[in-house]
Design a protein around this nucleic acid. Structure first.
Lengths: 217, 217, 217, 217
DNA sequence: CATGAATGAGTATTCATTCAT
DNA sequence: AATGAATGAATACTCATTCAT
């Protein structure tokens, strides 16, 4: 149960955040919320609309904050600098607010169509900062990726994963972690001449195995 | 409703796979399963144990298949070759079997402790192939990453994301997609001399913004 | 929401009257009442006892008023005159105060036994004016009905119906409407020589149909 | 609790019929229904859709039956004969099936718009038989009422009231009761020359009283 | 092989009401 | 005079599951 020193309305929000992140929206009952917040289920409804409103609120807050952080960051400087800053922000956000970001990343499908559209729009806006930085970098030649759209998706997935496992009491500070991700992101985007000379035999074997295990439908 | 030409037992599995992937385990009711499979809820129980057994089965199958594909692949050759093959396999699997892999990636928390331990063990075994390839590459100098454990997590998240968005009728075949991911993975692992000389001022600003938006609790 | 110029206590009464008439007692929640009255649910309880008290109050007022109107009216003059006056009053009351009378007519069953007894006593007292006028008319020969008790019930139901459909902006004024009801009431009570010679065959057919549709259980 | 010899599905219907008639739709909880039917609330839903479906079903059945009875009855013969037959049927139906008819008469407002429209259409169709018989009688001179529409409403209200109080073990059989209503209905429709010469003074007094008690808003 | 019948426990949400301020 | 906070009990309805047939 959350500390009773906090006002009840805030405790309800915190309970929702923690439980939605931990068990998912559908895996969290309102009784769970009430118990964690230290109020009765009836009192819950004094502080919230529906359970889904609570979810939408969390996701909206999460996306707006990320967007607010990305806006000044995603625009100035070279593509390399922009990607570096976006990555840094994204990782720091996911390390500092893993609950918010996990809920935002995982529970889109639990929203009703109306809220889903709203949140998706925010996310799309956010992703545009990434895409344009990548595209610009490809134009200037700073980045060498063959499929810029795929690169964006790969980068975002990779960075968002942080929220799933990062612990501040681990070996890396959030800042160090972000630095590592910046390096990896830039490495990923600058695929160098030193390319894999794929052993055709091995690849052939592997593809045969894949085809056998997951026949093309 | 699924085609009635399939035997009912298989239709139940397919229904579970589709619905768990689409709505999540907790978001799927057994009535949904029964309807999609075209049988009554009572009949469902002729073909399955509990709803959770169905989930555990899917996850087990998914992980075992991946493991079976990774075993011969993860061992021979240079670290670079091994990572290339693992990436290729992982991406092909996620492109070819997005439902299985999404369920396996997302629904671990829905399992009861017993099954969770079993699946986690399989996943850990699988990830060891990646980790040892990365570590070996760092030893040989083929890879230059500062935090090999983080690199593993980043790589896996990035590649698994494929199951969330890849469509076989899009611009890339699964093979081309895998090739792009291999390039990006190797790029990510070989962070080259061309390093970002971070504008300290800008980073300072950004960190101040981040600290403001997500105060360290 | 009701006009805020009215004092709150009155607005609560009006809200209750309107909503109980429109949706019934059980179909009306106290949140509905509060919203319509423009106050919070807590404030509601400054102006009322329980929700049921509010209902009992309305019904008591309604019946007392009707009784007060009927008292001087139900006694003097010939039975014909008395029925004419009672009918006139009853119809005017139901046309002028449809909400009160509808609630009084429909929501007896929603009252707790205590209040129900009280209101029923008032209603019985009121109906006695009607019954005695009818009985007297039968004695004097002014009325020719075979079942005076049934006639009372029929008359009252027929006149009370006015509250369900009369609109003052329709083709008839309340006075004209009352005049029509007086005529019909007196016609109903004076069943003349011109009697139906029922075609026995037709009646037989009909009774057979009725027996088939609604078997005597 | 209803006899367990009946099949459960039927017991649910009977319970709904009785309780909706007795306490109204909103006054009846599904626990009440379950208890009366002798099943659990969950089992209830094996035999019904929603609570409202149950209500709509009852009303539909009730109106359809009445309509089926009225169809052959409302058409042949003189207006007097038609009204006599309609009245007879209506009264017999309300005496034989008081629960059905009370629910149908009282709970229209509890229906959702969709079902309400459907039931209202049936009721309007039924009332047209009455209206056309009345109108035809006015044309032929058999009936002398000043406001035929009002007469229809008055007749229907008066006859429907039967369902509220008639008991088969009382002094009148249903057939006798119907006969009395036929007489009253025809009397009501044939308002004779011998009309009330209203004592103007008395009427004036009364109207003054009415105006005082129920001021015209 | 398949299902209709049945349920205890649970779902999210609302109920009328109280009370301290 | 008015309300925000709080709640136990109820609301209609669904859950996953069992079992006799």
């Amino acid at each position: 149960m959350l500390p009773v020193t906090e006002p009840a309305g805030r405790r309800v929000r915190t309970a929702a955040l923690e439980l939605f992140a931990e068990r998912g929206f559908h895996g969290t009952g309102i009784r769970d919320l009430a118990q964690r917040a230290g109020v009765s289920t009836a009192t819950l409804y004094h502080y919230m609309g529906t359970k889904e409103d609570l979810l939408a609120e969390i996701m909206r807050d999460s996306m707006r904050l990320l967007l607010r952080a990305a806006s000044p960051t995603g625009t100035g400087g070279t593509p390399t600098e922009r990607i570096a800053r976006l990555t840094r922000i994204h990782v720091l956000a996911h390390a500092a607010r893993p609950l918010h970001t996990r809920v935002a990343d995982d529970e889109l499908r639990a929203l009703s169509p109306g809220s889903r559209a709203e949140i998706t729009a925010l996310r799309d806006e956010y992703e545009r900062f990434w895409q344009s930085a990548i595209d610009d970098g490809v134009s200037t030649g700073e980045f060498r990726v063959q499929a810029p759209g795929v690169a964006r998706l790969a980068l975002l997935e990779m960075c968002s994963g942080v929220a799933r496992w990062y612990r501040p009491d681990g070996p890396l500070t959030a800042g160090e972690l972000a630095a590592r991700y910046v390096e990896m992101a830039l490495g990923l985007l600058t695929v160098d001449g030193i390319r894999l000379e794929p052993d055709p035999g091995a690849v052939g074997d592997m593809d045969r195995l894949v085809a056998e295990l997951w026949p093309p439908s």
